[in-house]
Write a protein that binds this DNA or RNA. Structure first.
Lengths: 240, 240
DNA sequence: CGCTTGTTTGATAGCTCTCAAACGCCGTGG
DNA sequence: CCACGGCGTTTGAGAGCTATCAAACAAGCG
């Protein structure tokens, strides 16, 4: 039995400025909250949804973190992305109404469940909600494009630096430290996401650590020099 | 002076089943057509829009083909995707209202210009249009995810085969031959898109040609064995 | 015909993968 | 409290794929 199918409280949620309610009037946020439900918390390795499943809901991360991945014909996982609080999951189902990836909890976490049909109705009534949904979709697209550039044109060191900077920015935007954080994913997940092997991830982290740019303690990451990390990603040299 | 700023004729357009009008009622399609304008044709290497420019319009390809790319801090182009007739360009601007990539004509072609503000209004009035726009955005996201998988986990040969199959499918969907077509892009564009070098593109095409799977004559491609090409992309082996 | 641009082909170097083994953390159980 | 085993991670050595560099080749055009 579902225990926690209670109404969400978007008006009081500290994540609302990153999430669907952004830019809406208080009464509109209440309308939105009325269709959103809190799902029972998920534990490590619980599936939020499965690839191929009919998509009836989008999900917003309330707490914890998630990993989405695609299974190829050989049955191998290929990690597509990670989700942190305030981010929307399930957007890849909008084309055909079925999730084209699976999403799994990387740690204990909770999500808000948004019924797709009700959301579509509400978009017709609240122009600002439609705009914000478009913005979120646009963000997904631009971040996918960034990932395409990363995978197409970056070395292992640059990928690793870029990954750490991306997490730094996202944690920072959430109000957490942008220099000290814990990785919620395994090395294997990072490697798969970056299109390299876990050995290469390990070696690049060791290298950055040896240079003093970061400090690594298991899942714990401390960035000692954000600027150096940025320079690795964007050499800014002028040779064409 | 703009010469061809005439109204678009979505109701008569053979691409409408692939494009924004899909699923709409005839009178709704007329409404849509009333806000869409035909822009003057573009020639090879004409820019449709520039990265960083304010986004006032989305564009649908009417004829020809286009390439979108991102300039990195070193001034190097990184090709994000190619657009064929019926496809929508500019979606990556929905996040911030500015194009995050540039798009350029690969040959003489024409586009339909869709004012973003009018489109948003119309989405509020026509639920089906909002749905279809979501579907198109979802398609962009899933195809970006496919590209992420390709760049993250595929060899040069698999990338080349996958690229040809993708074009085959898209040309087929347009009613053209799915086995014989001309590449509108240079080898350099293909290489950049696939995250490999032009020499590798050339070698892989030569290899596929030597195996008799395809026949290459300059830009002309003929696929002699679609099934073999598919097997290269999806080995379907069962080892985990 | 010569120039420019784009493509193909060849030889070598280098980055990352693969394979292998050691290491460390952490739970369980004696 | 400590031994043990499982899992994830780190480290090392060698191979392989693709990039790089170089030059020949083809096509289009004045």
């Amino acid at each position: 039995m579902e225990l926690a199918q209670v109404k969400a409280s978007c008006p009081d949620c500290r994540l609302s400025i990153l999430c669907l309610p952004f830019g809406l009037q208080p009464h509109e946020i209440k309308q939105l909250a009325s269709i959103v439900k809190n799902r029972r918390p998920l534990q490590l390795n619980d599936y939020l949804y499965l690839q191929g499943e009919e998509c009836l809901h989008l999900y917003a991360v309330k707490s914890g973190s998630f990993r989405s991945f695609i299974l190829n014909t050989e049955g191998l996982e290929q990690t597509i992305g990670f989700y942190l609080p305030g981010e929307i999951m399930g957007l890849d189902a909008l084309q055909h109404g079925r999730y084209s990836s699976s999403t799994i909890a990387l740690e204990t976490g909770s999500v808000c469940e948004v019924p797709l049909s009700r959301l579509n109705e509400l978009c017709g009534q609240i122009p600002g909600l439609q705009i914000q949904l478009m913005r979120i979709l646009g963000k997904e697209i631009t971040s996918d494009h960034d990932q395409i550039v990363l995978l197409g044109h970056r070395t292992a060191k640059e990928r690793m630096a870029s990954f750490l900077l991306m997490l730094s920015r996202r944690y920072g935007a959430l109000g957490f430290s942008n220099t000290t954080f814990n990785l919620s994913m395994r090395r294997q997940d990072i490697a798969n996401f970056l299109g390299i092997t876990i050995e290469t991830v390990s070696r690049q982290l060791a290298e950055l650590s040896k240079q003093g740019i970061i400090t690594v303690k298991q899942r714990g990451i401390q960035i000692n020099d954000l600027q150096l990390l940025t320079i690795i990603v964007e050499p800014c040299s002028i040779h064409d």
